[in-house]
Nucleic acid binder design. Structure first.
Lengths: 206, 206
DNA sequence: TTAGTATTCAAACAATCGTTTGAGTCGCAT
DNA sequence: ATGCGACTCAAACGATTGTTTGAATACTAA
């Protein structure tokens, strides 16, 4: 097990990510995936055991880093002088947006996330909850601190809307055409829009 | 072709709606659909021609009425004295929320809508655009009127976020548990939250 | 009643699905 | 060089997919 940059495993993960984003988890077949990855069909079951486990690993590959980045950004925001709601949202949004510009697969992955959001797949939700719920808890704590006028039910309501809105918006981010802007400028502009939008919605009087 | 309340055609549409919401368009098989509808397998191809056309008809059955209701609500809002942004949003949101409480299938359909949003299916988008784009145009015109400080690009940006957020939130509306509230009360509360949230996000200074 | 159309039905179609198999190949340590 | 584990490969597995067929049934109009 050497560490190769373009090993069979990584090629499969990359191709699966793109095709899951394009056709969905049920809609993308393993033959499409292995063909795009230029890999033998049996390689999926050899390296991942099953299609369902492949799906999980597609998430794990990105979410491990994404959640680490989000927690780091949150820690940095908390240390900031004059820490406000917008900073919390920034710590949540910016690492995900950075993903869309990092490499080719990142943009696809955000769309995969939006699909997982739309699906209410039992096992997938359990997998995500088991592995990454602690990150969400950290953010919820800070949101609750900045929005003391909202009771717990109301807060969850709004965070649910906000996370849904952000997920959808970021999924479309890669698709929307930008005119005369660098990728970096477009990303900054997007982040500001999303944060301002979300902050306004969260702060609205109950 | 008599008008029956529970004809084979309608039973198929109802079952398909529920199963598409639960398992997705690719994930729900025609055998699952026909079995749930208590109808012969061949009935789908006999009445609808193909699975893809069945999907279209699932949308048409609800969207025809939904868009009529939305345009009627918009007309009523425009005639109102002191017509404001919140009224436009109300005309957009309330008919969709009413759908979730009308009958059993309505709640499923809103989730189907959220799936269609997450998918970027070429043919489905064309079908929706061909049949219902005139409704969206009406709403966009009023949003543009109420938000003159936003240029066209910025407006589309925010509407994209808002429609995504609303679609997702309404899809979860049927899932979220309500404590001590009637369906009507819960729907009103939901509408108020969504409208206030969206209005705040749309009005935020650029 | 009868002719004709509309619908339902069981059965089968070819195609594709995820998965398994067993032989084959590769690289590396002994 | 030899042996061993890691990996790849073509081929096939049974199950399931959407769709089609032709006969049987239900319904409607004359």
């Amino acid at each position: 097990m050497t560490i190769e940059l373009f090993s069979t495993k990584q090629r499969i993960l990359g191709a699966a990510e793109v095709l899951f984003a394009k056709h969905g988890f049920a809609g993308a077949s393993l033959r499409q995936v292995t063909s795009a990855a230029q890999v033998n069909l049996a390689a999926v079951n050899y390296h991942f055991g099953s299609k369902e486990n492949l799906i999980n690993e597609v998430f794990r590959r990105r979410l491990d880093g994404l959640n680490t980045d989000r927690l780091a950004a949150l820690a940095q925001a908390r240390a900031k002088q004059g820490y406000v709601l917008e900073d919390t949202l920034d710590a949540f949004v910016r690492p995900a947006l950075a993903l869309t510009g990092s490499d080719h697969g990142g943009a696809s992955f955000v769309r995969v996330l939006a699909r997982a959001y739309a699906e209410h797949n039992e096992r997938l939700r359990k997998f995500l909850h088991d592995n990454y719920s602690h990150v969400l808890k950290e953010f919820v704590a800070d949101f609750a601190h900045f929005l003391p006028h909202l009771d717990k039910q109301e807060l969850y309501w709004r965070l649910d809307i906000v996370s849904g809105a952000l997920t959808y918006a970021m999924a479309d981010f890669g698709v929307i055409k930008r005119r005369g802007l660098t990728e970096q400028q477009h990303r900054d502009l997007t982040a500001r829009h999303l944060i301002r939008f979300a902050a306004a919605g969260l702060r609205a009087e109950g």
